[in-house]
Each structure stands twice: as structure tokens, then as C-alpha cells.
Amino acid sequence: MRFKLGLTGSIGMGKSTTAQMFADAGCAVWDADAAVHRLYGPEGAAVAPIGKIFPQAIENDQVSRDALRRIIADDATALKRIEEIVHPLVQEDREAFIAAHPQAIGVFDIPLLFETGGDAQMDATACVNVSRETQEARVLARGTMSADDLARILARQMPNAEKCARATYVIETDTLEHARAQVQDVLKDIEQRLQHA
């Protein structure tokens, strides 16, 4: 892989939309959440090991995220034990993706990029950003969580301002046109870096 760009940002900041813009521009995009879905799905590599320690998490030959949430809420040690199974499998999935795209600029959509130290494996990082009001409006418009749910999620994550301060690039996602223009600018900069490498 010619270049690895880690893409991150808090919930509702427009990360998935921005990742799609990179894909539309010809980048190979790896999505951490999609990798976990594959691992939890039928035939997924995480099903058997999670089933061994938490049999109640397995429904229809796959890992139930709802059941996992209940287990994690009831057992203070559960999250760490699940992560010890899932993180190495996610890493294998990512390495297979890198090997499959030797000539690409790869974009790695990782919500907890900085929290997990994943930025150390990237050539550069980009953080999506938007105002707190826009973020809340976007998340609540999905109809899947309340303002309290959002506050709980954000309390567990590094503040987006801190992610932006650590990132190589910041992409403001206030409008689609503005975000798309910034994606093009980031890719131009990466191409220049590769020419001078």
C-alpha cells in the first residue's frame, strides 16, 4: 500500500460520508465497524471464541450486539475480555486488506483511532469535524438514540477538538461540497508527499 490515511471523528461528524468521498476518488477504504460486523456475522471468526466465554451472546450462529451490550452492562470485566478476542482479529482483517491493495492509497475508517493507538500505524491522519449543534441534530435525526445516549457515547471518547488537534488534516463536514473539496485537497497533498518521498 502506497499510503495509509487514518480517518476518524466522533459520532455524527460525517465520517462515513467522508469515507465514501475518498472511495469515490479512487482510494481503497477499510471500515473498522464493517470488519467487526464480518467477525460477528455467520461464519465470522469471533463467533466461536466469544461463544466460549459468553454463550448467551450467540444467537442464530452469530454474535448478537444487543446481547453483548447487556453482558457488558452487567459484567465490569466483559468489555476487556471481548476486546482481547476481537482486536487481534480486526488487526488480521486490516492486514489482509493492506496486502490486497499494494498500489492503493488506503483510507482506514476507525472511530477510536487515537484512543486505541491506531494512529501509530498510519502515514497520516484526518479527523472530520462539525459544530456540536450540527452533530447532535444529525445523530438525533437518525431516530436510533436520545440526547442522553449521545452524551454517554461522547463521554467515553476523546473530545473531537483533541482528535482534530492531533490529526494531520481536519475536514469540516458542514456541507457536502465543502467536505468534497477538502478530500480532494488532502489527496493532492498525499500525492505530493509520495512524489517527494
Results as ranks from 00 to 15, higher is better:
109 D>C: 09
140 L>F: 11
158 M>Y: 01
155 A>Y: 00
151 A>F: 02
134 T>E: 04
152 R>H: 12
169 Y>Q: 13
114 F>K: 09
148 D>V: 10
139 V>W: 15
97 F>C: 02
131 S>G: 14
110 I>L: 14
116 T>P: 05
122 M>W: 07
111 P>D: 08
165 A>P: 12
144 T>N: 03
130 V>F: 01
166 R>T: 15
144 T>W: 07
100 A>D: 08
121 Q>P: 09
134 T>S: 04
157 Q>C: 08
107 V>I: 07
127 C>D: 06
100 A>T: 04
90 V>Y: 12
113 L>M: 05
135 Q>H: 00
90 V>M: 13
126 A>H: 12
170 V>Q: 09
125 T>E: 03
154 L>M: 13
136 E>K: 09
152 R>M: 06
135 Q>W: 00
122 M>P: 05
150 L>I: 02
120 A>K: 15
134 T>L: 10
104 A>H: 02
154 L>G: 10
155 A>P: 00
153 I>P: 00
92 E>L: 06
155 A>G: 00
103 Q>R: 15
165 A>Q: 14
105 I>F: 05
149 D>C: 01
124 A>C: 07
103 Q>A: 15
170 V>A: 06
118 G>Q: 13
147 A>F: 07
132 R>S: 14
102 P>F: 09
95 E>H: 12
92 E>T: 11
137 A>D: 02
120 A>N: 11
165 A>M: 09
138 R>D: 03
111 P>L: 11
94 R>L: 11
148 D>K: 14
110 I>D: 11
127 C>A: 15
110 I>Y: 13
